[in-house]
């Protein structure tokens, strides 16, 4: 079990307190909703997709510090990325929080997102970090609802609403 301070790093606490891109996005052409029925967490991701590029991304909703910070930093990381790049980030983030990707040993594009690596030591909290990503992924795929419901313990099965 890692130290608490590795889970609640200052950056995460900061994004929890002041989430970035935390508003409804006017002009969004993809809107996707995410639910975690276990805890009642809910968020909506707004995406402006143009010629295969995520031009803008925002979110609103309620959730714990982990999910809020994950959503906030996700919007920063994905904004401006192509659909393919966003897909790669989604996959890598997933593999990292489920312990399948060693972000220090293997090549990846996660950058600052690696501060969420500590989540893998808290199995009950993996879904908190994943929910925003699933929701964004659903928007990427043009779907409207994401949920952590059908994921089971193995969260690597990519898109939630499949």
């Amino acid at each position: 079990m890692s130290e608490l301070s590795e889970l609640y790093q200052q950056v995460i606490l900061d994004h929890n307190k002041k989430p970035r891109n935390f508003q409804k996005l006017e002009g969004a052409n993809r809107v996707s909703e995410g639910f975690n029925p276990l805890c009642g967490d809910q968020l909506t991701v707004y995406m402006l997709m143009d010629e295969g590029v995520v031009r803008d991304l925002s979110f609103v909703g309620t959730g714990c510090a982990i999910s809020k910070a994950a959503a906030s930093m996700m919007t920063q990381a994905v904004k401006g990325k192509t659909r393919e790049e966003a897909q790669v980030l989604f996959d890598e983030f997933h593999r990292m929080v489920t312990g399948e990707l060693d972000e220090e040993a293997e090549e990846n594009h996660l950058g600052r997102l690696t501060i969420f690596a500590g989540v893998r030591d808290y199995p009950a909290r993996v879904k908190c970090a994943s929910l925003p990503w699933h929701t964004m992924h659903a928007a990427l795929e043009g779907e409207e609802t994401a949920t952590t419901e059908n994921l089971g313990p193995d969260l690597t099965q990519a898109a939630v609403s499949e």
Binding site: M1, Y8, G40, C64, A65, I66, Y122, A124, R125
Partner: peptide, 29 residues
């Protein structure tokens, strides 16, 4: 300003088991 799940995780680190969530009573929440 603190979500109950974060409360639950931090308490767990202290060896304290509580429940955090909607307690299967969403209308109460």
């Amino acid at each position: 300003e603190v979500h109950p799940h974060d409360v639950g995780t931090i308490l767990d680190q202290e060896g304290i088991a509580i429940r955090a969530g909607h307690h299967c009573a969403q209308p109460v929440m």
